[in-house]
Amino acid sequence: MTDVFAHALRRRAARLAVNALIGLFALLPILWGFLSSLKPTDKIVEFPPRLLPENPTLEHYARIFADNAAYFIANSIAVSAASVLLTLALGALAGYAIARFRFPGRDTLMVSTVAVMSIPIASLLVPTFTLLSATGLADTRLGLVLLYSAYQLPVVVWMLYGYFLSLPVEVENAARVDGCSPTRTLFKVVLPLSKPGLVAAGLFVLVFAWNDFVVAVTMTSSESARTFPVAIYFYLGFYGREWGPLLAASIVSIVPIVAIFVFLQRHFVSGLTGGGVKG
């Protein structure tokens, strides 16, 4: 009897140890960056390194905000919010068409959706910049909003299509019989029922737009259109080997993502497998 007990205990301890190892692997770089960001400049590169800061300070955080961080954060928020709204609007229309209508070209449209979803943005950067410079959209926030929406639209169409399919079609038929046009039915009946789907899809766009660095750094050059990740990149050149402000800026950029993730994780994972895996 005690043997069984000891065995169970050992198993439990082993499981705990493996979990601790996984947690360390995932979080150590972030934790170490955070702890370092709280150390005064001369203590950051101290050897041997001390894990916990002796005299924690927020001086690096104050420094990045003195260097215009708030403006770049506001840019990021504006661009992200606009991208979410635009993508959801266009995605709802297209997703509804695929979910509720049979029309010539529908299959082609669905295959192209997955194809466009899978094209990596990196291979589009140089041509896109070439096009944007020719049309005057380079180095504008509007340009970023349009690009983010274009890149996330296929995933959003796919997610909303799946969500609309799961809704009972009877309610819509009733609305149609009462004389609602298809578009009106979508806005008055379907969308109010689709809040969880819209939240999941919107979060997906939000995190993409907030985190994007590659598109923003290539398509913008002036400070007026600069988003926060690009600002962090420029801090890398600007502060050089001064790690304090760099790490502080990195942590500031992580906080909203982690907050969203903690509160809304449920909504999130459904999107990752978008364009999906299981039957």
Partner: peptide, 23 residues
């Protein structure tokens, strides 16, 4: 644990690489 493992994936790639560069 699933949530913890997802954190490096959720944060910006730029920030993740920056933190590793420091590490």
């Amino acid at each position: 644990m699933r949530a913890i493992v997802l954190v490096p994936y959720m944060i910006a790639m730029l920030v993740g690489s920056m933190l590793l560069k420091w590490l």
